[in-house]
Nucleic acid binder design. Structure first.
Lengths: 135, 135
DNA sequence: TATTGTTATACTCTATAACTATA
DNA sequence: TATAGTTATAGAGTATAACAATA
């Protein structure tokens, strides 16, 4: 089982690495991560900093750059004047959608020509991976 | 098939992201990558720069830091005086081995308790992924 | 003259510390 | 006094441009 853990991990990381290297990126990795978080739901800078494992000042700058580029917008919180709620702009949503489409296309090209059996294996493996990583 | 491409890509990237975030790292990601390349075989700084998609001066600094920390050693090339051949020191090999062991352990913990059937699926999926990504 | 590698300088991302505004 | 966020300053990584050594 140690061999499986190693091989599976390597395979996943290789896919990930190549996707990140080979799909065009209008965004630096840390910026992309933040946009993905915000595409799930609006969040505060503090939340983002915790999720991305960076400090508050660092996230503050990252967010500032994304706001400047028109991908993210700030809004005041009605109940707490200290809080700034961040969310994607329409442009930000478009950029994320484009980037995701490129990444999915990279993967789709590599799955072309697989047999139905092979695809079934990969479907089951995907479900297993999701389940297992949720632990 | 588009759905499979998306889901499989996401699953792989999630595994990769969590491994990178959650295993202790004595090394920054770019340093780790370089040590892995050198663990395969000795290379020149120029080779490394090309493989890692960074410029020569950038790789020069990265290598310099790894040499200073005692993980990498420089050697002259007998046939071409311009060339500097880089390789891992014993300490560098130890560090890489430790880091890999931590990463494999992370994955192994998550595979614990899977049925033999599930593990067979993951084994087949791993082989498919390796094949498919080699394209 | 071309190639390998490094140094010079500037920009970005990160961090710790200090500051502002609100609770 | 504590919390959310930003600004100040400094330490790395990266880039382009310029330089040194060798082919």
């Amino acid at each position: 089982m140690a061999a499986l853990a190693h091989d599976l991990r390597m395979a996943c990381m290789r896919v990930s690495r190549r996707v990140r290297f080979e799909t065009t990126t209008q965004l630096a990795p840390h910026q992309f991560s933040v946009l993905v978080r915000l595409s799930e739901q609006p969040r505060t800078a503090g939340d983002l900093a915790g999720q991305e494992r960076v400090t508050a000042p660092s996230m503050s700058r990252t967010v500032g750059a994304l706001v400047e580029r028109g991908f993210v917008q700030r809004a005041a919180d009605a109940r707490d004047g200290r809080v700034v709620v961040l969310s994607l702009t329409t442009l930000g949503e478009q950029v994320i959608a484009q980037e995701r489409a490129q990444r999915d296309a990279w993967m789709a090209v590599r799955l072309e020509g697989l047999s139905e059996d092979d695809r079934a294996v990969l479907r089951r493996a995907t479900a297993l991976l999701e389940e297992v990583v949720a632990r």
